[in-house]
Design a protein around this nucleic acid. Structure first.
Lengths: 147, 147
DNA sequence: AACGTCAATAACTATACAGTAATATAGTCA
DNA sequence: TGACTATATTACTGTATAGTTATTGACGTT
């Protein structure tokens, strides 16, 4: 990717603060489950709106709107054929992003499982059932670093 | 990362649909400019709330709330020292994510620049100044695939 | 103990946005 | 030309959330 000498700024920490909203917008586009499902469907190849609507079991207007969001950010591209509008992935990087995140979540769940296991052998009490007093401002103190 | 035989699901397309909201939540945490700025600050090392508040020029309550979001998802970790609360990056993957996105945005901008350049040499007319008729439902037709 | 500082929370407001229903438009076919 | 289909858009509603202000609680110092 991009080996032609001039290299545009790449690292977040080298980024002009003005560019951050753009980065945020990118992530925001991926922050909706339905949009992720759409991208997931497109993984198998281009699909038109109708097909997506059927497979995702939601309204056509909703799918169209989400596709608009994804297209505006360049994640998908549109190609009209007759009255149908076919969409395809235009930027494979979304899968890299998703896979990175999925990996981290898996790790975190793994962590959780192991933590829970540490509680189980002794007795069958549900781990971490310490009831919070509601209505009181319970300031956190030193139970740090427990992910 | 994780080489112990059993491998948790990793790819988005192998993911249970029930897991998608978790992935979306991950991205959502990165979809706020201020949170990205916080992460950017933490790149230089742990900071307490006060320091972050000063450097980011926003309210302490707001910083605390955003740090709470980032901590809940495991992006940062908290460590109390006296009355101060120090936060540090707990998951370096955020920088991989951000760098990927920054790279794509740079590419997109590059693309834009080149597209614009194609319009310039002829005359000085501002490219793509085709005024949209407001109040009319302008259905898109065949100007596809232009990113 | 009394006070000051730091951080987290609660209550509130304003805004953004996902979803729906209705409608408009482009292309197709009779 | 007139249905018919597929898609995009509009107007609307409900919900989520960023930011603010005020408050609470924990810790440290005197």
């Amino acid at each position: 990717m991009r080996t032609d000498g001039r290299r545009l700024c790449k690292k977040l920490n080298q980024l002009d603060p003005l560019a951050l909203p753009h980065v945020a917008a990118y992530f925001q586009a991926l922050s909706e489950p339905l949009r992720l499902r759409i991208l997931n469907e497109l993984r198998s190849g281009p699909r038109n709106v109708n097909e997506l609507t059927a497979r995702l079991d939601c309204s056509q207007a909703n799918v169209s709107k989400h596709l608009g969001v994804l297209a505006r950010l360049g994640f998908v591209a549109r190609h009209a054929r007759g009255t149908a509008a076919y969409y395809r992935i235009a930027d494979e990087v979304v899968y890299d992003l998703c896979d990175l995140v999925c990996d981290r979540i898996a790790l975190r769940l793994q962590h959780h499982v192991e933590t829970l296991r540490a509680f189980r052998p002794k007795a069958e009490r549900p781990a971490r059932a310490a009831a919070r007093k509601p209505g009181k401002t319970a300031r956190r103190t030193a139970e740090d670093d427990l992910p």
